Computed example of a mutant assay.
Amino acid sequence: MSTPSRIPGPALAAAVLAALGVLPLVVVAFLVVALGGLEADSGRRDWVSVVLLLLPPLLQLFALGWFLLRRGRVPLVLAALAAIAAGVLVLATAASVGQSVGLGPFVLAVCPVLAAGLAMTPAVGRWLAEARAHRRGRAA
């Protein structure tokens, strides 16, 4: 059985963009939590919002690991959708308090969306399929 091939350019670019995409998501979650943006008037923290803010960067990290282990690319797409949802959450929160933030929150989703797009290229599909075939051949 031959050894697995080297990582193709689009897969490497997708991995780098996925890794870079974690940083803005973590920064936004940290700033909102650290600055007390999730505390109600009573001083209690809104734990549902904390989880919703922490979910996208954690999903992005999981997707990156899954992709680098050559298990699949679907988690990258789900992570991109979660990053878009985080941008929508920021926009909705800003609108509910009367603040205008423009389209800035969607910067959170730029790297994850580009990573998911690159992961869907045929070269990456062949790279992942080769890994699947290699795992099946070793298990048999």
Rank of each mutant, 00 (worst) to 15 (best):
M1F: 08
M1H: 08
S2K: 12
S2W: 07
S2R: 13
T3K: 10
S5W: 00
S5C: 03
S5Q: 11
R6M: 07
R6G: 08
I7T: 15
P10M: 10
A11E: 08
L12P: 03
A13M: 04
A14T: 04
A14N: 05
A14E: 05
A14H: 05
A15M: 03
V16A: 08
L17Y: 02
L17A: 01
G21D: 07
G21Q: 05
V22I: 15
V22W: 06
L25F: 06
L25M: 12
L25D: 02
V27K: 08
V27I: 14
V28T: 07
A29L: 10
L31P: 04
V32S: 11
V33S: 06
V33E: 07
L35V: 03
L35C: 07
A40G: 15
D41F: 11
D41S: 15
S42A: 13
S42T: 15
S42K: 02
G43Q: 04
R44I: 12
R45W: 13
D46Q: 06
V48Y: 13
V48Q: 11
S49C: 09
V51E: 11
V51K: 09
V51D: 12
L53Q: 03
L54K: 03
P56D: 01
P57E: 01
L58Y: 08
L59T: 04
L59W: 07
L59P: 10
L61F: 04
F62I: 04
F62P: 08
F62T: 04
A63G: 04
A63F: 01
L64P: 03
G65C: 01
L68N: 09
L68C: 13
R70K: 03
R70P: 01
R71T: 06
G72N: 07
G72K: 09
P75M: 02
V77N: 09
V77Q: 12
V77E: 12
L78E: 04
A79C: 11
A79G: 13
A80I: 07
L81Q: 05
L81W: 13
A83H: 07
I84V: 15
I84W: 15
A85E: 12
A86G: 09
V88A: 11
L89S: 15
V90H: 14
V90W: 11
V90A: 14
L91Y: 10
L91N: 14
A92C: 09
T93C: 09
A94K: 00
A95H: 10
A95K: 04
A95C: 05
S96Y: 05
S96A: 14
S96N: 10
V97D: 15
V97K: 08
G98E: 03
Q99K: 10
Q99T: 10
Q99N: 13
Q99H: 15
Q99S: 14
S100A: 14
G104K: 12
G104Q: 12
P105C: 01
P105N: 01
F106N: 01
F106Q: 02
V107Y: 13
L108Q: 07
C111G: 00
C111D: 03
V113I: 06
V113K: 00
L114S: 06
L114T: 05
A115I: 03
A116H: 02
G117D: 14
G117R: 06
A119L: 06
M120I: 01
M120E: 14
P122C: 05
A123V: 02
V124Y: 11
G125W: 01
R126K: 06
L128P: 02
A131K: 06
A131Y: 00
R135W: 04
R138T: 15
R138Y: 05
R138M: 11
A140G: 12
A140C: 03
